[in-house]
């Protein structure tokens, strides 16, 4: 049953999403792309691009997109509500604990200790996403099927992000426009 599968998957994603936004990409990708094949790697990156250009958090956007694609509007409701449900319960419990003890040191300590794991997950997601953009998948990484335009564009925008403090939204938009021009004239 697709609704149950959506609810189960997005509930678990919601429960283990630490660090916000791009930090959870590998968790979401592993469930949505690798386990269930609800999206392809390319569609997954498309959704990150679209999310940067529409309001709302990345996680909600992905839950809504996947829900609609797999099971229509009921699917959207199932996936999105399941995604926020664990946060709802945990935040309310934490709020009560806070008003009772006014001390979050233990929680903050554990979360600080999770920073290396979060960094590792971002690294893993980056490898998959870069692999897909440059070679159509990290497994197929070879000089022969390298997308030269994608490599050059990614490196240019990396420099702009690092040195010129260009924002992520602007980077993705500009790379879309310049990429379209390059692919049109040089060929895909």
């Amino acid at each position: 049953m697709i609704y149950l599968e959506l609810i189960k998957t997005f509930f678990i994603i919601g429960m283990f999403s630490f660090g916000g936004g791009l930090a959870n990409m590998e968790l979401i990708r592993s469930r949505v792309v690798a386990d269930h094949s609800w999206l392809t790697n390319t569609e997954f990156t498309d959704i990150i691009s679209i999310s940067e250009m529409t309001p709302g958090p990345l996680g909600i956007n992905i839950a809504s997109f996947v829900g609609t694609r797999t099971a229509g509007i009921p699917g959207t409701l199932a996936a999105t509500l399941a995604y926020v449900a664990p946060a709802m319960v945990i935040v309310l419990i934490m709020a009560r604990v806070y008003y009772k003890y006014r001390n979050l040191d233990a929680v903050k300590g554990v979360l600080n200790g999770l920073h290396p794991a979060v960094a590792a997950m971002v690294l893993a997601a980056a490898v998959k996403i870069v692999g897909n953009a440059w070679w159509g998948g990290i497994e197929q990484a070879a000089p022969a099927n390298t997308d030269g335009i994608a490599v050059v564009l990614a490196l240019i925008f990396l420099v702009l992000l690092q040195k010129k403090k260009l924002g992520p939204v602007q980077s993705i938009l500009l790379s879309g426009v310049s990429g379209a021009v390059c692919y049109y004239f040089i060929g895909v």
Partner: peptide, 8 residues
């Protein structure tokens, strides 16, 4: 083209 931007 945006795939490269997201990669960056």
């Amino acid at each position: 083209g945006m795939q490269a931007g997201v990669a960056a």
